[in-house]
Amino acid sequence: MIQYKNAGDRALVVEFENEISEKVNQKVQDMAAAVESCSVKGIEEVVPAYRSLLIFYNPLIISGSHLKQTLIDLAGNIESSVVHRTVVVEIPTLYGGDFGPDLEYVAQYNGLSRETVIKVHSEREYLIYMLGFTPGFPYLGGLAEEIATPRLEVPRTKTPAGSVGIAGSQTGIYPIQSPGGWRIIGKTPLKLFDPNRSQPFLLKAGEYLKFIPIDQKEYEEIEHLVAAGKFEVMRKEIIGADKNDHV
C-alpha cells in the first residue's frame, strides 16, 4: 500500500512498506526514476530514501492535489515496464595500518584474523540504499554479521575523508572529514565528494559498491591519478529484474 503525505507546503512524501529491504528500496528507486523522467512542470527535486521518496514542488506552478494525482498515475504505470539496470562501483581500499586503525579491534572483537575481516568485508556487493547525513554519504546495506562491531565509546573528533568504517551492522565511507564513532578499518583514495568535479558525487542511490583491497603502492598511484583528475573509476553494469541474477 503506497501512502502519499504532505511534508510541509512544498514537498510530498511517497511511502512504501515500512522496512529496510532491497525489494522495497527498488520501488523507491523506480518511483524516483519515473518522477525524474516525467515532464510535469513544477516538480523541483527528489530525495530517495530507504522506503520513501520525498518530492519537492513549486506550489505556484503545480497544486498539491494535482501533484498527488500525477504521482498516483506514475506509480500505477511502473511495475511491469522497468528493466533494472544498475552498476557496481569499485572502491579501491587500503585496509589496516594508519588508514584503518580499528581493523585490529574489529578482528579481535569477532575472533577473526585481520585477513578474514578484509576478505569478508570486500567480497560483498553493497546496495547504496540512499545518500545523506553528509554530502555524498552512502547508506549501505548488507554487512556480514560476522564482522559487525559496535561503535567507538568515545567518537573521534576528526575522521579523514575516504575512511571506510563499521558501525554495528552497517558499513560506510566518510565523504568529508567529520567527527564520528565508526570503527575505521581502511581508507579509499577516491573522493566521494568533490564539488569542483564535473560529477561532484561519485555514488548514486540504487547503485552497488564493492570494496577492492589494494596495497600502499597502489593507494599512492591511485591517489596521484585522482588528484590529476585522471583516475577512471570502475563501474560494472549489471542488468536484471533482480540483482542476484548476474552473480
Binding site: R10, V13, E19, Y50, M130
Partner: peptide, 10 residues
C-alpha cells in the same frame, strides 16, 4: 523512524 528525506522547516 527508518531514515528519510527532510524538508525545510520540518
Amino acid at each position: 523512524i527508518i531514515t528519510d528525506g527532510i524538508p525545510l522547516g520540518a
